[in-house]
Design a protein around this nucleic acid. Structure first.
Length: 315
DNA sequence: CACTTGACCTGTCCGC
DNA sequence: TGCGGACAGGTCAAGT
């Protein structure tokens, strides 16, 4: 679920919280979530200080003063949640008489996902989805949670990061200042005979687009996701570029989309889904023409379209 | 080579 | 109520 806007939201949060902190310990309960050898972790991560937090495509990079970097992919259900030790975590709240307020739970049992926007995730961490815990000198923690265990974090020498296969293949950042509509059209032209949805999801064409923003931008441009790339006109391609920029920027502004699992570095949800026009809205009215949104399968993924606004043309 | 499908996982939901 | 199966979606390996 984390796509570019979600990963960017996590990056913004971590960039405020992590730089300057020193790691004192690392624990991991699932080898694939953090496959590095213990000896490398002990040598290059324990005692290391965070310099900066970066993002490329859907990947986060945490750079350390040991000239090593943690490369992190959240895949579908990954979360990176930072929890600092606040005084109120250790001490119960007192009333005006200095007595412990009655009825308060020092360890709330409310869990994220119960359906309330203010549910606290932080108060319950670690939980059974926690795969890796980084502990810092001040006893704050960074939890890497990942229900489905598809995500991973790996420690690499900083100089080797650009030569990781994924970074060698990945396409341009769609929100980069120098990424133009013409660039977009030329990148799409690399996959002329596939569907526009498959091309948008292909990270070697454009970085960072996933299922949510592919459906949302295609609806905005009135293009059916199953349209062959080489049948899309220059004008439509330009419109799609504009719509993609619009949904990605709006989603970052809204803190990303939380469907089920996604939360930011503070454990909070994103609100883009409140603005979604088609994604997960099957059976509801198209905001443009009120026709009911339908769900189908394109490029092997659940795909949401307005059957009236997004006609499949084969000319 | 271009493109599509299956595997990796767990939790949830739906139908019987 | 329990149970099997479909589904969720990012990426890579394997298949067509």
């Amino acid at each position: 679920m984390p796509e570019l806007p979600e990963v960017e939201t996590v990056r913004i949060g971590l960039a405020k919280l992590l730089p300057g902190r020193k790691i004192t310990s690392v624990t991991s309960d699932w080898e694939k979530s953090f496959p590095n050898a213990k000896s490398d972790v002990d040598t290059f991560l324990i005692g290391a200080m965070v310099l900066r937090v970066r993002r490329r495509a859907k990947v986060l990079l945490i750079d350390f003063d040991t000239e090593y970097s943690l490369v992190i992919h959240l895949k579908m259900t990954g979360q990176l949640v930072f929890v600092s030790k606040h005084p109120e975590d250790k001490h119960p709240k007192l009333n005006s008489n200095g007595e412990v307020k009655t009825g308060q739970k020092l360890k709330p049992e409310i869990r994220f996902g119960a359906g309330h926007p203010n549910d606290s995730l932080i108060s319950t961490l670690p939980d059974r989805s926690t795969r890796v815990i980084l502990t810092f000198l001040d006893n704050s923690h960074l939890y890497f949670n990942d229900q489905r265990k598809f995500g991973w974090m790996k420690l690499f020498p900083a100089v080797e990061v650009p030569s990781i296969d994924f970074f060698k293949r990945v396409g341009p950042e769609p929100l980069a200042d120098d990424f133009t509509s013409d660039d977009f059209k030329q990148r799409l032209a690399r996959r002329p005979r596939t569907t526009i949805k498959a091309a948008l999801l292909d990270q070697s064409v454009i970085a960072g687009v996933g299922n949510i923003y592919a459906d949302e931008s295609l609806w905005g441009a009135r293009i059916h996701p199953a349209t062959r790339v080489d049948l899309i006109s220059s004008k439509k391609s330009h419109t799609l570029y504009d719509e993609l920029q619009f949904v990605l920027r709006l989603a970052i502004e809204k803190g990303g989309s939380t469907d089920k699992n996604y939360v930011n570095a503070e454990g909070k949800r994103g609100s883009y889904m409140d603005f979604a026009r088609v994604f997960r809205r099957e059976g509801l009215a198209c905001p443009r023409c009120s026709t009911l949104i339908v769900k189908s399968r394109v490029a092997g993924r659940g795909t949401h379209t307005c059957p009236r606004c997004q006609k499949l043309t084969k000319e």
